[in-house]
């Protein structure tokens, strides 16, 4: 059992406030992804949980034990680093065995565990090699195997796939998900890649400027962003935003359309819609097509709506060409509204 609780953790580097008093709870065996742009504090948070960084304030609890004053080796964690950190002077076997030997485990048990994790990561034929003789993907596998062999309560991963090429990343992603689900450890995974986050996570914490902006399941994060930042960061392409002016109680003028919206006293709010949730038809936003990008499964169209760029994902069998004018209708159930001042979602 290793649930992780973070209470009021903050970190500053000199005058720079990297983390602002965070609270977070991660359930046992949960796969939590910390997602955010570089510099948002996600790696700092991970390193605080690992014990590689000392928080300026706050508490870290792992498995019901307060650990923020303990060194990394006493926290029951393993970590996979972005640059793999495979020891170059040891063979793959000795790399995987490193932590086990530190625990003074007997040779037969070391052998058994190394063989088993090596098999799991498909590197059993590489055990006698050195790091210098491995490809990036193989090193990555060694790093994960080394972490798994410890049979830790918690595995921490710091952008483990970001140094791999695209195809390999896709393959490793699926494999990691399978292996980690089977190992029944609690996982915290840091990434800036939203696709990686969506595909791996039980729960995603979106971070921005040292704060957690939203903490929810991937679908919830995608469908109901709690803040404008989440909508503009998640999704490829991200959400479209158009200013909305109040015409009547609960009625809003959005780029020439009048739509049902939230009943609020504000005069000006923001309308948001995902690019795949608009449909061409007889009625809708008047959109001048600028760029057409056929992507195979569908076509990405960039247009001008009320003088602002607006992206729509259309069926690929629909022929669209630049210069054409479309009418794009948003699906009513997928419309979201944001407060311009607080930048947070307004419930409809």
């Amino acid at each position: 059992m290793a649930e992780i609780v973070i209470k009021n953790v903050a970190k500053s580097f000199g005058a720079f406030q990297a983390l602002h008093a965070l609270d977070m709870a991660i359930a046992d065996q949960e796969f939590m992804v910390l997602l955010g742009a570089s510099g948002c504090g996600k790696t700092t948070l991970l390193r605080i949980i690992a014990g590689l960084e000392t928080p300026t304030q706050g508490e870290v609890w792992i498995g019901g034990r307060r650990v923020d004053h303990l060194p990394p080796r006493q926290r029951g964690i393993s970590m996979v680093f972005q640059n793999y950190a495979v020891f170059p002077h040891l063979t793959v076997f000795e790399n995987i065995a490193f932590g086990l030997r530190m625990q003074k485990m007997g040779q037969p048990e070391v052998e058994r565990r190394v063989r088993r994790t090596a098999e799991l990561m498909h590197i059993e034929q590489l055990l006698e090699r050195y790091s210098g003789q491995l490809s990036g993907g193989q090193r990555q596998r060694v790093a994960v195997a080394r972490a798994l062999a410890m049979e830790p309560d918690v595995i921490l991963m710091d952008e483990p796939l970001s140094n791999l090429d695209a195809l390999l990343r896709l393959e490793m992603r699926a494999e990691l998900k399978g292996v980690l689900a089977e190992s029944k450890t609690t996982t915290i995974y840091v990434t800036h890649d939203q696709v990686e986050a969506m595909s791996l996570a039980d729960r995603i914490s979106v971070m921005n400027g040292g704060k957690i902006v939203q903490n929810d399941s991937p679908v919830e994060i995608y469908r109901n962003p709690a803040a404008r930042f989440v909508g503009s960061f998640i999704g490829n392409p991200p959400m479209n935003f158009i200013p909305a002016k109040r015409t009547d109680n609960g009625r809003w003028a959005v780029a020439g359309l009048e739509l049902d919206g939230p009943r609020t006293e504000r005069e000006l709010i923001e309308f948001a819609i995902r690019p795949e949730d608009v449909f061409p038809g007889e009625e809708g936003f008047v959109a001048d097509v600028r760029v057409v990008e056929p992507l195979g499964a569908h076509t990405l169209v960039t247009c001008d709506v009320a003088g602002k760029p607006f992206r729509a994902v259309l069926e690929s069998d629909r022929r669209v060409s630049p210069g054409e004018t479309l009418k794009l209708m948003p699906a009513a159930s997928r419309i979201r509204w944001f407060d311009l001042d607080t930048q947070t979602a307004i419930p409809a």
């Binding site: 690992a50 014990g51 590689l52 060194p71 990394p72 080796r73 964690i77 393993s78 970590m79 680093f81 972005q82 640059n83 950190a85 020891f87 170059p88 490193f98 932590g99 530190m102 625990q103 080394r146 410890m150 921490l156």
Partner: peptide
């Protein structure tokens, strides 16, 4: 020598 090598050793049980 990358600091991560040392950090990895710490997480693997070394002081």
């Amino acid at each position: 020598i990358p600091v991560e090598l040392e950090e990895a050793a710490w997480t693997l049980g070394c002081n």
